[in-house]
Design a protein around this nucleic acid. Structure first.
Lengths: 258, 258
DNA sequence: ATCTATTTGTACGTATGTATT
DNA sequence: AAATACATACGTACAAATAGA
């Protein structure tokens, strides 16, 4: 017997019960699970839900906004429109997670403690597993790194390209949890360092190390040398951490949009 | 000049613009950031927002539901009530993150790859840093572990207590990112294993190892021996992973409630 | 290209619930 | 206990978007 959407009976009075929209949202989530609905599947439409729950239009709509805010559904107007189950996107999840860290404060040390442990692990997994296309994508990013930076602007572009390089590696992770964490960290660093105090002149040492790192890493990955890849990443992480520490980043706090 | 809440002007027509409630929600988030509002600070009330945005009550309310779903605000009724900035709770964030992994699928191997790297790191940080009260809390959890399990039910209780032990350690992390990840994983495992296929009889070997682990770890932490603590955790992780692999867990997929 | 049917989105007035004073 | 100041819920009417004829 499958789960049925109905109005929860609140005979009990005056207690800490959830608001009606929240109740509706939870009921719909249970419905999705019990019916094993997949992304793209259609939920009952507004009119139908109003009937099933015996609640007002506004209440049902607020419930939909809750589910939408969580990224679990998308709605479309028009014929054939309605409310559809939606796979929660990585971007949205990252944004929600940054909201959590808006009031906490992460230091460079905190972030690099994780990076130093996980990124070597990641490249160790990837060694020998990337397709020609994957490699090509990484090489495209490296193109941006080809020449030494001539000015501050190029310095900034290089810095962001280097974080994109790490994000791209994260995308290839078979371990989705590992990939998500590393991707999240790369984005966080990218946001933190957008407004960073740049060196007074382009940093050639940084450029050289970064380029060498990418070249060596790619070579190790191509040749399937896990141990080597891991080592290269470990060394790079130590270098990057030291550099970031020196630069006294101005951490920009903000909420990410969706 | 600070950011001001006003109605976004959508002169443009018929394009992929965000829905009004979403626009309002984003505007309010920007307002919070620009005014540097802190948890507990009050947002303008419904009537006020209706005026400022020149939008209907329902639209404003839907926007509030979005922010509430993200855990960024809480509303209270009554005089002195209204909408208040709220620090996003860890539980809520964990729930949102599990939604993301609802459609991805994490294996025991995936999860333990992270655990094996991060949990030793955590206890290494904690060694010598815990207060008498912290230790006491951990010992309370260990109480549940004191006697060998007599039946399946006790076996289950022990298993959950052991995950709570890890969660508790995560709470003490100074590195909030590290703490969050470990706490999230512990909760995920706890959910995954609620319905696990238990052994036909209480597992004494598991109990013995678990208890020994907790005792030894606590000793190392008390004495401030980071290296020892890390080692003990590493060994325990290997043991736990092997055990989990053997048990062919039935992974229960569901959305977490709030 | 226009109309039509369908479905969500917006607006608003009213009534009710809830917590503080 | 009553008044007050809010949020919550309801129901209707109409606007906007979109697929298909």
């Amino acid at each position: 017997m499958s789960h049925v959407i109905t109005r929860p009976n609140n005979n009990t009075r005056n207690q800490n019960r959830a608001s009606r929209p929240l109740q509706v949202a939870e009921a719909i989530k249970n419905f999705v699970v019990s019916e094993a609905l997949q992304p793209g599947d259609k939920l009952p439409n507004e009119a139908e839900l109003i009937k099933r729950f015996s609640m007002a239009k506004g209440t049902i709509r607020e419930a939909m906004r809750i589910l939408e805010a969580q990224g679990l559904v998308k709605t479309r107007t028009g014929p054939g429109g309605g409310c559809f189950v939606h796979e929660v996107s990585e971007n949205r999840t990252r944004a929600l997670l940054s909201n959590y860290f808006y009031f906490k404060h992460l230091s460079i040390t905190d972030i690099y403690q994780i990076r130093k442990k996980l990124e070597p692990e990641l490249v160790s997994n990837l060694a020998g597993k990337l397709t020609r296309e994957d490699i090509a994508e990484l090489e495209t990013i490296m193109e941006e790194y080809k020449t030494p930076p001539q000015n501050k602007e190029e310095d900034r572009i290089h810095h962001e390209a280097s974080l994109r390089f790490h994000s791209k590696l994260a995308e290839y992770a078979k371990n989705h949890l590992l990939g998500f964490i590393i991707g999240f960290i790369a984005e966080t660093l990218s946001e933190m360092t957008t407004n960073r105090r740049l060196f007074d002149y382009p940093n050639l040492q940084l450029w050289r190390e970064g380029r060498e790192f990418q070249l060596n890493l790619l070579k190790a990955i191509k040749s399937g040398d896990s141990k080597k890849a891991s080592e290269i990443m470990t060394n790079h992480m130590s270098f990057a951490e030291k550099l970031m520490q020196q630069q006294e980043f101005k951490v920009e706090r903000r909420f990410s949009d969706f």
